[in-house]
Design a binder for these strands. Sequence first.
DNA 1: CAAAACTTTACGGGAAACCGTAAGGTTTTG
DNA 2: CAAAACCTTACGGTTTCCCGTAAAGTTTTG
Lengths: 221, 221
Amino acid sequence: MFKKVLVSDDLGCTNEGVLSVIKSLKIKHAEQAQYCDDACLKIKRTQLDLDPFDLFITDLSFVKDHREQKYTSGKELIIALKKEYPHLKIIVYSVDDRLQKVRFLMNVHQTNGYVCKGRQGLVELENAIHAVYKNEIYVSPQLKPALSPKNDLEIEDFDILLIKLLSNGLSQEEISAHFKNENRSPNSLSSIEKRLNKLRIQFKANNAIHLVAIVKDLGLI
Amino acid sequence: MFKKVLVSDDLGCTNEGVLSVIKSLKIKHAEQAQYCDDACLKIKRTQLDLDPFDLFITDLSFVKDHREQKYTSGKELIIALKKEYPHLKIIVYSVDDRLQKVRFLMNVHQTNGYVCKGRQGLVELENAIHAVYKNEIYVSPQLKPALSPKNDLEIEDFDILLIKLLSNGLSQEEISAHFKNENRSPNSLSSIEKRLNKLRIQFKANNAIHLVAIVKDLGLI
DNA sequence: CAAAACTTTACGGGAAACCGTAAGGTTTTG
DNA sequence: CAAAACCTTACGGTTTCCCGTAAAGTTTTG
């Protein structure tokens, strides 16, 4: 079984809960961190040692506070860590069950597990730890569809950005100007209208307000 | 100190974390529930006994799943319990830090404590337990402003409803018609425009889309 | 009870969003 | 390499939103 585990979540209570599972698995050495940067530091420091952390369990969302942070989300930290230490096993433990995010972390960045916080969260986490130890990947049952390849009728980044700018109060004309500034194409007012029209249909929205509300509820922006 | 505590949160890991605090306070008897209805049942059952639960710590948001529930949120359950057992001490332990909600539960329904989940959550929870045991009320420091009386320049229900309808995709004209249907006044298109204008200024929004996005982020709708 | 203050409604003009059509580019494909 | 398919842009017309002003109605106040 894993020898040394790091658990990172901004909520102390969640760390406690996860640590109780770790303990029940007879893993001797476990630590916790409440900031991504702390977690990063702890991992980097021990990678040079004889017994580095061999499993990292992390939340994705970390509430900002007074402490300035280099990494402000679990996602960023995972990307950085996987680049530097591809062999470090990482399990995400998050309430965020959006398939996009799951797919991104699992497929693009080779994260080893993704467990949804939920009523069964701790049980699933235990299963995940066992699976990942056997070099398998693990995702919570409700996230399985995320990894099935057929499910790729995706919203593009462009669309997300577009809606995000809308939600920030920019008019379609301002968005067009903004895209022209950044040399991003398409950028004509007409294209933006067209894109929004497609999105409205896709999300069954009556108008732009409705669209933004729906997409916000889905957590896409 | 309290003799018998019930902890309720849909996330098992959070319950574990809270229970670890309870234990450290030498409270012998503690139980947990993952559904509001379960919590309710446990409390009701022991209220007739010699040693009923004398403290109830609960989350507010409970994710719905297959199990049909009478109470679907901590708020509803608290209201019901406080009506039936006014002397039962209740502490809210939630990520939700919206002042409106705090004020509602503390002032209107005599909840005894309100602790924000956060990095310091468990420490604050411990303080809350001590305070509540001494018949004081406790709210997390960042929520203090919620209870100061001056802070009552509230958004009216009308405004909330208005923005909600907007976010549901209704045009201003449709909203006017809708209000006329329900005999709610004011209901003219002009009044609705005026109201929205005021809200846009108040929330520093560029347009209606922006307004809806801001208000959604604040969690008011 | 009448003046003042406020709220609600009406209306008109300009801006932005919405919608269809069509022209000009680019990529795909036989 | 040319036809087809697709994407991007342009443009005009209609609807909705945004904003100011003013009239009508309601409440407050001396």
